[in-house]
Design a protein around this nucleic acid. Structure first.
Lengths: 159, 159
DNA sequence: ATTGAAAAGATCAGAGA
DNA sequence: TCTCTGATCTTTTCAAT
């Protein structure tokens, strides 16, 4: 079962190929994309811009923390049943520069929070600071050893 | 406490500014970066390429699953203490197109696996298939409701 | 889809620290 | 030795047709 087979429900083959090629190499030009996909560069351009405007495709400059040697950790958090507190807490997380990711779950845990810091001691301090918020009911900390794959692609080999 | 203060231990000010600007907008040109940072476009280019070659910076075309309406989930997995089984399992995950992320932890859980599929039923099937591997000792499934922030930036507003 | 002007990308020899 | 600069040439982008 592949990428294409899932995305086929949402996009046509040419859009899927464009996404796949841009996932492999975000700097590929519209002209090259066109040759590979079988469209004029103008047509590719229109499709690409449409995908970007709809938020399906994002070209992102990502700092790979593990290649810098910066330690990071994931917090699993269970929140109290207070919508206002919950919203304030999430907004605080989004505004916090040291928070790399915030994902909401349905299930035992409410949030996954990924954060980073200079060293493990500071990482723990920041984690404790975050979970001391009154919106938090329970939590678990997991320190990251290594990320093998991210954004749908292996990040160990190649660019 | 900010981005810059953490990265200062690893990079100089100009590299940090380049990373930050590219994180905000991956399509900014070397010339504009140069004006903002105070370098010629050639100098910016050299720094950017160096950051990319060292794996610290990646410019990635990302498919934003939630903007496509594709459901995804995180599996927390505890592995058995068998190095060979463990390695085979991780390699299988990396090769699996439906697996979006694989992160290794130190702690109660060994792996975070993020995967996606057409619908929740298939997502569950694929999850069960993955955790039926003989390397797996225990697991938890968390379905994702929403991702607020990723790659160090809010993904709800803006590009 | 084609065109043309403006912008960006890529390369290089030489300056400067 | 390492980094920056400015000149030059190629390619891409982008809007108009």
């Amino acid at each position: 079962m592949s990428w294409e087979e899932v995305f086929r429900n949402y996009l046509d083959d040419k859009d899927i190929r464009i996404l796949k090629l841009l996932n492999q190499d975000a700097n590929i030009s519209d002209a090259k994309l066109g040759k590979l996909v079988g469209l004029s560069k103008t047509a590719v351009r229109l499709r690409r811009v449409k995908l970007q405007n709809s938020g399906i495709l994002k070209i992102v400059g990502v700092v790979v923390l593990q290649n810098l040697g910066i330690p990071y950790a994931d917090l699993l958090v269970k929140l109290k049943n207070d919508i206002v507190l919950r919203e304030q807490f999430i907004n605080k997380l989004i505004a916090n520069d040291l928070v790399y990711e915030v994902t909401e779950y349905m299930g035992d845990w409410d949030l996954l929070i990924r954060l980073f810091h200079n060293n493990i001691a500071k990482l723990k301090d920041e984690s404790l600071k975050i979970i001391s918020d009154k919106a938090v009911q329970d939590y678990r900390i997991s320190y990251v050893v290594k990320t093998y794959k991210a954004w749908g692609k292996s990040i160990l080999s190649s660019i």
